[in-house]
Each structure stands twice: as structure tokens, then as C-alpha cells.
Design a protein around this nucleic acid. Structure first.
Length: 914
DNA sequence: CTGCAAGACGATGCTTTGAGGGGG
DNA sequence: CCCCCCTCTTTGCATCGTCTTGCA
């Protein structure tokens, strides 16, 4: 019986393949395309198995399905993506279901196994007809593909990069808000009575009401940006047109506040891609903002990323926008077509979409879209999928309409999308801007929520809250001091606010706490706080510097009193806010559902404690949740076994009872010989794991080493997890062969176990050196040094002997050869000599002059020489004579360092001393 | 329809202390 | 006979996170 996991493990393969293909792509462009493609696919796949199967499986009503060969697509990157993943997946799916008959669901495991082996069938050139008799339900139950570690890593990387991008964008917008020209223009538009606000010393949020109202009446948020350009231009044109994206409008409000010498920040929700893999990225701004291709999702389209190039003319940019949007809609259609968008089960969607989009440019995309949608109109789908699909469709259509420059169309879209709000409160707020003209598309996106508030301003009101306070000012939605409403509005748009960042003075500060009442809900969706704080640290300084007092280089305009006041707040404004945010963090209301306590940073209920956790002290009770007492998280203590604490250099105090006991449920295999009741007894009494808390501990008090004997554990060793674990009076010596040295000197020692290595399904202790009593340390080190020296000397000697042996061998062969030549082939001698030259041509440390009875001239043989110590008498046999080099015939030339050894027969060997 | 609780299940991480045979 | 080295083999449970299901 195969394990359940085996099937799902197989399912990992496509992602592995994708990754490989990405890694093997050379260029950065390809990699980034791959990453974006992957992200989109991830978004399209969605989180669940059901979705995946329903996405890619194509049931046909009559039970017969023609599987077309997958044709390479025209766009290269699309081809890259779709062939690698979607195409493959779908091929896989098709094959996987080929032979599933009704009622044969049990066989699916086996079929899974054949999935991948047969996966290439659909790639075949020949179309094939496959008889299918499948109920859609049968495909719904399998293929849970969990996110792997790699997926998680990727998602986190994308999340981080996205955060950085959005931070950077926020800073750009903030900088644009400082533009003197824009500020001056805004002031020039302002009615005279509102201008007096700049002289108000005691600012309250109420005093700003008329200003906000005026601004809201005169500046309207619309669905599209004013083309792709730098924030400065965007703001300028929004100012000119008196309308712009919510981002631009919010930024203009900030600029206006700053123009009036108010301390203001541009605040933005950073709507980043999910930190967790497998969750489709649903930008919040799809309603009143810019749709899915808006700037809140800069990763969607790479062309969109060019929006900051200020040099391009507006018309060119418009043109480009069209192209890119259209191109993108094609692309995204192709990428998403086989998956997310295909699963529409609502036939009204394509119709509506078709009606609403009349632009000829988009006809191709629409056709394809329609065909895809109608093809697969019978699948089960979750609500979230449907919504995402609608968002996508609306984004497509909006983009297309934007391209056609048909302002009517885009206006209608804006209004219609704004008109549908689930929350009545929000509806009331927004009802003025939405002209409530339900167009065709509005029914398609009827369930769409209104765009979430993404951008607003914060103004520092010195007269609020005794100490002064940052006040939320949403000019787009005409909400003043509505920080508690933001969360609900965002929640109504199906997204949580994870990062709210305030920008000022080219810096930024995370003010999420001000707007988030249910931190526990977003905590897990935020990036590792250490990383985030390190990113924000420099920006925070800039921000606090700017909002502290010396604001926006207009101090000369500030009246003396105000300047003084500002100055007095310089060091404290930021810290007061910090305290405020911190207070919010520590006074979060108790959640009402139990699960919220699972990883809550402040509160805990006993139910969610882990095996090694305990409440100590058990109180105070802060409240109750479904009958469970709620305790502060600070009461949670970690408990561990004695052995574990030992590693920390701590031991349990005497007479302490275990704070917690766990029943051991594992491996009674060794005691199987015991009788059953015996065995039960042992489990009851001995097998419990006894755990102790920190308060039951004292510093480790190991037995002292006495009389040179190392205290050892029951295994005759010392566990050296750290220096703290060493018995007093002992040292840990790590040098090589320490054990043998100690043994030789008969010094008591114990192997030092430093950890475990898990190998072959078993834990193996890892040893490193020995533990000995401290008094032997020096002796041992000395002995080791001696030993080491001796070993080295021995080694040297070994080498020398070996060298000699080789020398002897070499010389013997030379001489033998020489003799043979002399005897049988006198004429060839020079060549032979040359031969020898060649063979030994490397280093000329030694020269041998061989002169035997028949040879007239001495021959030079250059040979390798490893050693100089040739004072042992080397005997080289020549003919009937064995050379004997006697000491008395040696001569040594100090200048050339040549030692010449001679035999009585006249043969000589010259050796160079090194 | 929504939210909650409980359960199911995959992924992951922690667990953690040979034995026998052959050759020198 | 002793000692050293090599080679077997590749856990399994607890926890976490996520998803499903059922209920209010």
C-alpha cells in the first residue's frame, strides 16, 4: 500500500522543473520573467487541490474529449511559461484522467504513478481522441500540492522585493508632495478663508474639516492614472484636471497640507504580494483605484515599471500604455487561461464582459477569453476564485477601455465599480462620487467590493490628545480622524492591511499599529520583523527628522511662536507616537475566537500550549474566551528534561518535582520480552518524561575532578555541549591523537562527545578530543608536541628511506643499461645517453659521471634527486664489479656544493648537497 | 453567507549513544 | 586474539500550518 504522500510528492515535479528551467535561463530578464510568470501561475493555481484539478481538467458534457496537441505559442515568454508549467500540468491532468472510469476512483493512486511517465503524450504531434466518462466530482478529490520550502522561500523573496518597491514608490510620491510648484498651485486655488489655516496655532482635526471638504469637492478620484509618468508630472496633471488616481489625490492633499505649513505625511497601505506561497495576489485597489494593472501591483507588468521615466512625452506614453496593456492582457490571458480564468461557472460573466468591452483592439483577447471561459463553464469553484477571476476580467476590460481613449467607457467603469459596496457605512461615504449608473460590466463585477482605501494623509494636530496627535485624513473618501474605520474598510475588501507606512521627508515609518486593531490577524502575514525594522531604520530617522520640526524647508514662513512650538516638539513628537503605537500594541483587546490565541503575542489560553510549555505562574486571568481563561503570554515558560537543561549548563535543584510529565508513547520494542503487565508497570513509572522549568534550576554543579580522575557519565565519556558542561578541574583537549597520548602516559581521560550525527536512521555520537584533568594539560600538550615532533621525524625518515630506495633503483637501471650498451651496441651509446637525458630531464640536482673500462668520455646523466643524504654507502654493480664508494675517496666542493663519490674502479657519482 | 471549532493531513523538524564481519 | 575499519541502512514521532467539514 503506497503511502498517501507518494502521490503528492510526485506532484512536486512540475514546480521543480519550472525552477530548473528558470535557473538554467541565462539572462536576468528571463529570470525575472520566469519569476513573474511563476507568481502569476501561483496566483492562478490558487491554494487548493480542488482548484487545481478543476482548473486544468476539461470535462466535456458528452464525455468525449479531443485533446489537441499543444501548439507552441507565439509570444516567446508565454511559451516558456506555459509549456513548462501549464501545458505540462494540463497534459498531466489529461493523461491522469484518461482511463478513470466511473467508480474506479480507488485506482487513482496507481494512475498517479503513471501520470508523469505518460505526461508527454499530449505533446505528441497527433491529435488523439480519448473516450472519457468522468464526472467532474471524481477529479475534485485529489492532488493536494502543499507548498514546499522552496516555494515559501520564493514567496518571501517576492514579498520582500515588493515591499521595497512599494517603499521606494511611497518615497517618490512623498517627494512629489514637497514640490513647491504644486504646493503653490494648490494654494492659489484655495479660497481665502481656508488660507488662514496656516496661521492656526492650535490645530485640531475639526479645524481641518472645511479644508478637506473643499478639497474633496474639487478633486475627484478616478479609476485610471493620468498616464505613466513621474510622480511630479502625475500630480501636476491631476492638479490640472482636478482628478486623478486615489494615490494622486491623496498625495495632492498632502501637498496642500504641507503648503499650509501643516505637518503632514503621505500614508499608504503597502499592498504587497503574499508572504505565503500559493495565495493568489489580489490587489485591493481593483475597485476605485486602478485595477489589477495599477501601480499597486508593479510586478504584474514590466512595462508598467517604466512609469517613472519623466522624459517621455505624454502621447508616447499613452501609446505605450495601450501597447503594454494590450500586450499584457494577451499575456495574462495566455498565462492564466488554462487555470484560473477558465473555471468560470457563471456564464453571465463572459457575456457581460463582451458587452462592456467594445474596443476592437481587444477583440482578440476577448475572443480567446470567451472561448476559454465558455469551454470550462461547468466547474465547481470557490467564491474567492470567482472573485479573483472577476477582478482579472475587469482589469482586462478596464485596461482595454483605457487604451481606446474612450473616456466615457472608463468613466462608466469607474462609477459602476464604485457603486457596489457591501458596507453601508462606506457606501454612504462614497455615494457622492459614484454616479450609480449600473452598466453592463457592473453586473459582472456586481459582487466586487469597492476599492479599499489605500492612500491618505496624516496631519499632526497639536491640540489633539493633550500631547498632540497624528490625525487620519482621507480626502479621497472624505473621512477625518477615521483611523478605526480603515481596518473595517480594508476588511470589507477582503484583504487585511498588513503594512501601513507613513512617508515624510523622504523617510518612512510603519504606523500599522494605529490602524490595525487585530494585530494577531496580520502578524503572520508580515515579514520577519527584524528584517523589516532594519529596512526601515534609516527611513525612520529621515521621517522623524522631517516631521519633528524643520519641516519641508519652509520654516521661514512659520511664525515665531509656531516655530518655537515646533522646536519644542522636535525631540518628542516621534517618541510620543512611538509610545502611542507601543501602547496600542500592548493593549490589544482580547480576541473572541479561540484560534486567535494560538500564536497571539500577548495572550494565551492553556489549550494552545505546546508539549514543552507550561503556565508559570498561572495567572493573572485577563478574561475568558469560550470559557477558557486567558493568561498573559508572559506566563508561558518552556520546560525541558534534565538532560536538555544540562546542555544549557543548568541543573535541576534538589527536591524539585517535575513541573510537567509527559507520557512517552514511543518504542517499547526493547522490552517486548517482558510480560505484558510488567511492561505496563514500566511505562507508568519509568517511561514518563519529566520536565522542569527555569525556576527549578540552578547553575550546573558537576562533580569535581579528584586525584586526576575525570568524572564521567554512565557511558564513560563527557558530554561537551559547551564549555559549561565540563566538570570543574578538567579541560577539553582537541588535538589529534590526544587519546593515545593520554593513554601512553597513563593519564585518566574521557572521550569528549560534542554532538550527534544522524546517519543511517540512527544517531551517532560525534567525538572530538578528550577531557582530562587540568593539571595534566601542560604535560599532555608537551607530550603531544614531542609526539608530534617524533612523528614528523619518523615521517621524514620514512620519506628519506623511500627516496634512497628509489635512487638505488634508478641508478641500478642506468648502470645496467650502460653496461648492456657497452657490451653489445657501442655505436649507439650517444643516443642511449640522450635517451637517459630525456628521461631525467627535470631537475639537475645530481650529475653522475660513469666511466667504465670501455667508455672514453664521461656521460652526464641528469636525474631527479630527492635527498642529499647519500652517505650510506651506495653500491652500484657494474659488469663483474660492484662499485664501492668509500668515505675516504669522497670529495666535497664547497662552492658548487657537489659531493663526489668515487669507486676504486674509477666510477664516480656527483651529488649536489641541498 | 459567514465565522468558528474541530479534525484531518502533509510538510517539516527534531530525535539522538551499533553491530557484525573482515583483515592486519 | 585484539583492534581497527568498513558497511550495513535510510526512523518515526510531534508539531505546525493549512484545508475541510460541520455547525450556529
Amino acid at each position: 500500500m503506497p503511502r498517501r504522500g507518494s502521490g503528492s510528492q510526485r506532484k512536486k515535479r512540475p514546480s521543480e522543473d519550472e525552477t530548473k528551467s528558470q535557473h538554467t535561463e541565462g539572462s536576468l530578464t528571463e529570470i525575472s520573467k520566469g519569476a513573474v510568470g511563476k507568481l502569476l501561475r501561483r496566483a492562478n493555481k490558487g491554494g487548493t487541490s480542488k482548484k487545481k484539478t478543476t482548473v486544468e481538467f476539461e470535462p466535456v458534457q458528452n464525455g468525449t474529449q479531443v485533446v489537441e496537441p499543444i501548439v507552441p505559442q507565439k509570444t516567446s515568454e508565454v511559451e516558456h511559461c506555459s509549456r513548462n508549467s501549464i501545458g505540462k500540468d494540463s497534459a498531466d491532468e489529461k493523461c491522469g484522467h484518461v482511463s478513470i472510469d466511473e467508480g474506479c476512483i480507488d485506482k487513482k493512486e496507481e494512475l498517479d504513478d503513471s501520470d508523469w511517465e505518460d505526461g508527454t503524450v499530449a505533446m505528441d504531434d497527433h491529435p488523439m481522441t480519448i473516450e472519457l466518462n468522468v464526472t467532474p466530482d471524481s477529479s475534485v478529490k485529489k492532488q493536494i500540492r502543499r507548498a514546499s520550502a522552496e516555494d515559501k522561500e520564493l514567496a518571501e523573496l517576492v514579498h520582500k522585493v515588493h515591499l521595497l518597491c512599494l517603499l521606494a514608490r511611497g518615497r517618490l510620491i512623498d517627494r512629489a508632495c514637497d514640490d513647491p510648484l504644486i504646493q503653490a498651485s494648490l494654494l492659489s486655488l484655495l479660497p481665502a478663508h481656508l488660507l488662514q489655516l496656516s496661521n492656526v496655532t492650535k490645530l485640531t482635526s475639526k479645524s481641518l474639516c472645511p479644508l478637506i471638504s473643499w478639497f474633496h469637492e474639487n478633486f475627484h478620484a478616478k479609476n485610471c492614472t493620468n498616464g505613466e509618468k513621474s510622480p511630479h508630472f502625475a500630480l501636476a496633471s491631476a492638479l490640472e484636471l482636478r482628478e486623478g488616481s486615489p494615490e494622486e489625490i491623496a498625495a495632492l492633499s498632502v501637498a496642500l497640507f504641507r503648503a499650509l505649513n501643516l505637518t503632514a505625511r503621505f500614508v499608504s497601505i503597502l499592498d504587497v504580494s503574499s508572504l505565503k506561497p500559493g495565495q493568489s495576489f489580489k490587489p485591493m485597489a481593483s475597485g476605485s483605484s486602478k485595477g489589477i494593472f495599477g501601480t499597486s501591483t508593479p510586478m504584474v507588468s514590466k512595462q508598467k515599471l517604466d512609469f517613472k521615466s519623466p522624459k517621455k512625452s505624454l502621447s508616447y506614453e499613452r501609446e505605450k500604455l495601450c501597447e503594454s496593456s494590450l500586450g499584457h492582457s494577451r499575456k495574462s490571458k495566455k498565462r492564466t487561461a488554462p487555470s484560473e480564468m477558465d473555471q468560470s461557472k457563471d456564464p453571465s460573466v463572459p457575456e457581460n464582459l463582451n458587452h462592456s468591452v467594445t474596443n476592437s483592439q481587444t477583440s482578440e483577447a476577448q475572443d480567446n477569453l470567451e472561448s476559454h471561459i465558455t469551454d470550462k463553464s461547468h466547474k465547481l469553484k470557490r467564491k474567492g476564485d470567482l472573485e479573483f477571476e472577476m477582478q482579472m476580467e475587469m482589469a482586462l476590460s478596464v485596461t482595454a477601455v483605457g487604451c481606446s481613449k474612450s473616456k466615457v467607457g472608463s468613466g462608466e467603469n469607474t462609477d459602476s465599480s464604485n457603486s457596489s459596496c457591501p458596507l453601508k457605512r462606506i457606501k454612504r461615504v462614497i455615494v457622492e462620487e459614484s454616479s450609480t449608473s449600473p452598466q453592463l460590466i457592473s453586473t459582472a463585477v456586481g459582487s466586487m467590493k469597492v476599492g479599499s482605501p489605500l492612500y491618505w494623509a496624516e496631519v499632526y494636530c497639536s491640540e489633539e490628545n493633550l500631547t498632540g496627535k497624528w490625525v487620519h485624513m482621507d480626502a479621497v473618501n472624505l473621512i477625518i480622524d477615521g483611523e478605526d474605520k480603515v481596518e473595517a474598510m480594508v476588511a470589507a475588501c477582503k484583504t487585511s492591511l498588513r503594512y501601513v507606512v507613513a512617508f515624510a521627508g523622504h523617510g518612512a515609518k510603519d504606523v500599522t499599529r494605529r490602524y490595525c486593531m487585530k494585530w494577531y490577524k496580520i502578524a503572520s502575514q508580515r515579514v520577519n520583523s527584524t528584517w523589516w525594522e532594519s529596512v526601515l531604520a534609516p527611513l525612520r530617522n529621515l521621517e522623524s527628522g522631517a516631521t519633528g520640526g524643520v519641516v519641508h524647508s519652509r520654516t521661514n514662513q512659520i511664525s515665531a511662536t509656531e516655530a518655537n512650538m515646533n522646536d519644542s516638539f522636535v525631540p518628542t513628537r516621534s517618541s510620543i507616537e512611538d509610545v502611542e503605537l507601543e501602547t496600542r500594541a500592548l493593549t490589544e483587546p482580547l480576541p473572541t475566537n479561540q484560534q486567535a490565541y494560538k500564536n497571539h503575542s500577548l495572550y494565551v489560553i492553556e489549550k494552545w500550549l505546546t508539549k514543552y510549555q507550561i503556565l508559570h505562574p498561572k495567572g493573572p486571568v485577563l478574561g475568558f474566551c469560550s470559557g477558557h481563561p486567558v493568561y498573559p503570554r508572559t506566563c508561558v515558560q518552556t520546560v525541558m528534561t534534565k538532560e536538555r537543561w544540562l546542555r544549557e549548563g543548568l541543573q535541576v535543584k534538589p527536591n524539585e518535582h517535575p513541573a510537567k510529565e509527559l507520557k512517552r508513547s514511543i518504542k517499547p520494542q526493547k522490552v517486548q520480552d517482558f510480560e505484558a503487565d510488567d511492561y505496563d508497570c514500566t511505562t507508568d513509572s519509568k517511561e514518563n518524561i519529566k520536565l522542569y522549568g527555569k525556576w527549578q534550576l540552578e547553575p550546573l554543579n558537576l562533580p569535581h575532578a579528584v586525584n586526576g580522575i575525570v568524572p564521567k557519565n554512565e557511558r564513560g565519556q563527557v558530554d561537551v555541549w559547551s564549555e559549561k558542561c565540563l566538570p570543574p578541574g578538567t579541560v577539553h583537549l582537541r588535538f589529534r591523537s590526544a587519546y593515545s597520548v593520554a593513554k601512553r602516559l597513563e593519564i585518566d581521560s574521557a572521550p569528549a562527545m560534542v554532538g550527534f550525527e544522524f546517519k543511517n536512521g540512527r544517531a551517532h555520537p560525534v567525538y572530538n578530543g578528550i577531557v582530562v584533568c587540568a593539571e595534566f594539560k601542560d604535560i599532555l600538550l608537551e607530550a603531544f608536541a614531542e609526539e608530534d615532533e617524533r612523528e614528523k621525524a619518523e615521517e621524514k625518515k620514512r620519506d628519506e628511506t623511500e627516496a634512497l630506495r628509489r635512487w638505488y633503483q634508478l641508478l641500478s637501471s642506468i648502470v645496467t643499461r650502460q653496461r648492456l650498451n657497452n657490451r653489445y651496441n657501442n655505436s649507439l651509446t650517444p643516443e642511449v645517453s640522450n635517451d637517459v637525458h630525456c628521461v631525467n630531464d627535470k631537475v639537475s640536482n645530481a650529475t653522475i659521471f660513469g666511466s667504465s673500462d670501455k667508455s672514453q668520455t664521461p656521460r652526464h646523466h641528469q636525474i631527479d634527486k630527492c635527498d642529499t643524504d647519500l652517505d650510506v654507502s651506495v653500491s652500484i654493480p657494474v659488469k663483474d664489479h660492484e662499485h664501492v664508494f668509500l668515505k675516504e675517496y669522497e670529495s666535497f666542493d664547497k662552492e658548487t656544493s657537489l659531493l663526489t663519490k668515487r669507486c676504486q674502479c674509477g666510477f664516480s657519482v656527483q651529488v649536489e648537497e641541498l
